[in-house]
Design a protein around this nucleic acid. Sequence first.
DNA 1: ACGGTGTATGAAACTAGTTACATGTGTCAA
DNA 2: TTGACACATGTAACTAGTTTCATACACCGT
Lengths: 323, 323
Amino acid sequence: MRDVARHAGVSVATVSRVMSGASNVAEATQSRVQSAVDALDFVPSPAARAINSGRTYMIGALVPTLDHAIFSRFLDALELTLADHGFSLVVATTNDDPEREAQRALDLLNLGVEGFVVSGITRSATFEALIKRHKTPVIATSYFDPNSETPTIGYDNGTAARQALHHLVDMGHSDILVLSGPTWNNDRTKARLDALTGCTQARLTVREIPVTVAAAADHVATIPAHITALLCLSDVLAQGALHGLRRCGLEVPEDISVIGIDDLPSSHSLWPPLSSVHLPVRRMGACAGETLAQWIETGERAAPINLETRLEPRASVRRITPA
Amino acid sequence: MRDVARHAGVSVATVSRVMSGASNVAEATQSRVQSAVDALDFVPSPAARAINSGRTYMIGALVPTLDHAIFSRFLDALELTLADHGFSLVVATTNDDPEREAQRALDLLNLGVEGFVVSGITRSATFEALIKRHKTPVIATSYFDPNSETPTIGYDNGTAARQALHHLVDMGHSDILVLSGPTWNNDRTKARLDALTGCTQARLTVREIPVTVAAAADHVATIPAHITALLCLSDVLAQGALHGLRRCGLEVPEDISVIGIDDLPSSHSLWPPLSSVHLPVRRMGACAGETLAQWIETGERAAPINLETRLEPRASVRRITPA
DNA sequence: ACGGTGTATGAAACTAGTTACATGTGTCAA
DNA sequence: TTGACACATGTAACTAGTTTCATACACCGT
């Protein structure tokens, strides 16, 4: 900038004024500075600006993975909303590992993020200490708990699981196999599972497997004969189950009913169309972005928001008369 | 930092040394500074560090959308690789709009990104001018062109389209409907389409529709009777087509064959399993990350990389004997 | 006792901007 | 003609750290 000032025969203050939307700089001076800027290919340093304004306009998002429709939809909506508020989104993946989450949080803090959006409410002590120290706003998503210390913007995973279960029960099913992803370090899955156990209307058998199409497809080969319905705690598992059942020569829903949770965009165009519980992840992303932007601008801590999940009954669940 | 120095009874230089991995600071002084840091909850300013080092360790990614498996897989791999090299990923979506891409690029530049990963090779003049000025490394992906001015790391979209076409031709199909997404502002789709027109082994009818399951499902209701195969330029369209054909009472592949391009993870577990051309997007993400990191560290311009696409023949294409 | 060497530390100059305050000039009204 | 005021601009003090260079002191060998 000193160079530009010298080249234009003005002071650095004047160059600074021109660079940041000149308020009261003479027309002539303005163009003289602009020429110098062009001649020297001058670009102002973002870091230097940030040091003065104290702002970076960056938000960090910590998600288990980007390679899953549920998180990428969420992030898409989040990014769109944040962009509207002048914020940019820095993404880091945690693979559901709290230690890695804490490490990546530190990285983002060292970048200068002004706030965080994270998945779930379980965080390592390191992470907790970090955000307390930096006084960084954090919003937890994919979860709803009005009493959580960090504001949650999401849905009640227990309710979602119960909606799926009740649908199966309503349709006459009582021998149900629950296909779950790992509950280790995953409070969303744990909440879904916890809501199911203790249910007295049906006999539930729970199986914990990796959340992949292949694992679910392989697993359904070993389903006990008395099972009439499959409750998959995520649509990816349900898709795998559908595939695996077909491979075993079983018809859905004639031989066995299947329901999922997530309602991925592709689920309704499967064959048979997959019954599922819709999770409002786009809305969640927009809400989280809006709320976090507000929090940062006003300094007022965000309030938790509960978004409703919705049962989407489709053809993969059949009504049966109990034996 | 001045406060910490005063509190510990040392100079700012010493505090600075302690904060950045003390090399030669006396044990006693070190702990005295640490106490002061803890007492005052001091956290160093990333902006001030950046201003001195001239580094931000941020990479910007510009993609059409996050809400599409092909881009989110790519970004997942990219983020993982960049993290290994100490870089963080800032994501911005462009919706395939060059003007918006340029705007978002400017935003990211004002954040201080040290490099860009973009989709395709078509950029607005504004964008071009911007990166020339800032001398920011840019890598174009999802495309391969060894002669492009910006290095490309990706696959040949024309080859991918031809692989799909040749498979259909090999299986005896000559009356083919091509379902394409919009070519407007999308050089990847355009390249695929261009590779097909001029083909003499089959009669091609091209239809351009939005890239959604619903649009494809609706469209297949109007397929001319003589068509024996559907070539979808993306798996999302193929999935929609599969769904729509079923709705029309047509069997795949008995009544009509369908092939896609992308090979989304879910495609092989559809019914029927979808034949497709596999695009190595994970590898592309890893390569792009690796290469860009190298470029930034060494200053040596990256070389283009061509990744092979691969035909995945599955059950959705049937061999027929030409009438 | 003296000089050489090494380590620990501080003062001040640096990174690249922004901004408060002072100053100079020109216009207009009293 | 002079005071008041607006406007344009420069000076210098800020933002928050890093780094160079100088210095002080301890230790060791002669």
